[in-house]
């Protein structure tokens, strides 16, 4: 039995006719790290909201089908119960700062205070979470004084500290430099290995290929294809549908068209591309 089961999910936001999600079926195992890719408007964010319970509890509108996680249906749970198990961060870090706290440490403790964790435990858990995302040195700063990338780390930490069983991340590294993004991916990978189930909407295909277990490609609200990262990211289907995959893959694809690329598979990272192009000479 999969940990997450999305069955025949179709959803349209209020006042819209075109559904944002159409007939989505998706199973995710416990401890699996799934990456969602797709253009803006493909339905990545809406799927994230549906997994995190905000569709249908926060956004009204027309919903068919169901979302199940940890054996419970989102439609039969309240949002506050659902969020105890499922954590969500989204793209804009500035809007994720609660505003109710003066320091990063307090900000990260906010969620734990809300769900009634005892004081001493809060302190321990916040310290652990700060170490996990490597932002101990920010603890005393005001969340508003941080850079976008730092705020994104704080937003991620604020959710991790609540120890969700399912972690839903909607473009969590959009404002980070490449090093920061890689660190987040590797931290998330580690969490998945420890048993946390992760769904991450992202554009950074190089890190997806390296760290995710599976890639789900969305187009116009439907699942276009899914499978192992390398297989999906280098597939012709994705290319034909105009997905922006990594430039290493694109360059090699062009080289293959001209008969230069001789390896069987296309590269997804710089190292593989270097190796493949090196062999051409």
């Amino acid at each position: 039995m999969a940990f997450v089961n999305v069955r025949n999910l179709t959803y349209a936001y209020p006042l819209t006719k075109q559904p944002a999600l159409q007939d989505i079926n998706l199973q995710i195992e416990e401890g699996e790290f799934v990456a969602l890719i797709g253009a803006n408007g493909a339905g990545k964010s809406t799927l994230c909201y549906a997994l995190a319970g905000f569709v249908p509890h926060f956004f009204k509108g027309e919903l068919q089908g169901e979302v199940e996680a940890d054996g419970k249906l989102s439609s039969q749970s309240t949002l506050s119960e659902w969020t105890l198990n499922v954590g969500l961060t989204f793209q804009n870090p500035f809007n994720q700062i609660s505003g109710a706290k003066y320091t990063v440490f307090e900000e990260i403790a906010f969620g734990l205070e809300n769900i009634g964790v005892p004081r001493e435990e809060i302190k321990v858990r916040v310290e652990e979470a700060l170490a996990l995302t490597d932002i101990r040195e920010l603890a005393r700063r005001s969340p508003y004084s941080l850079s976008g990338g730092q705020q994104q780390r704080v937003a991620l930490t604020s959710i991790l500290v609540m120890r969700p069983k399912l972690l839903v991340l909607d473009e969590p590294t959009s404002q980070m430099d490449p090093v920061g993004a890689k660190e987040v991916f590797s931290a998330v990978r580690k969490l998945a290995q420890e048993g946390m189930t992760v769904v991450m909407a992202e554009h950074k295909t190089e890190w997806i290929a390296r760290f995710a277990d599976r890639v789900v490609a969305l187009k116009e609200g439907r699942i276009l294809m899914q499978g192992a990262p390398r297989e999906v990211l280098t597939s012709d289907l994705l290319f034909e549908n105009g997905f922006g995959v990594s430039r290493y893959t694109s360059a090699a694809r062009e080289a293959r068209r001209r008969g230069l690329w001789t390896k069987k598979s296309l590269p997804v990272s710089l190292d593989e591309a270097a190796e493949g192009f090196g062999a051409i000479r």
Binding site: Y49, T83, G87, F90, S98, G111, N114
Partner: peptide, 9 residues
């Protein structure tokens, strides 16, 4: 902003 604080209980 409402979503962000709802996600945190």
């Amino acid at each position: 902003r409402a979503i962000a604080i709802e996600a945190r209980g």
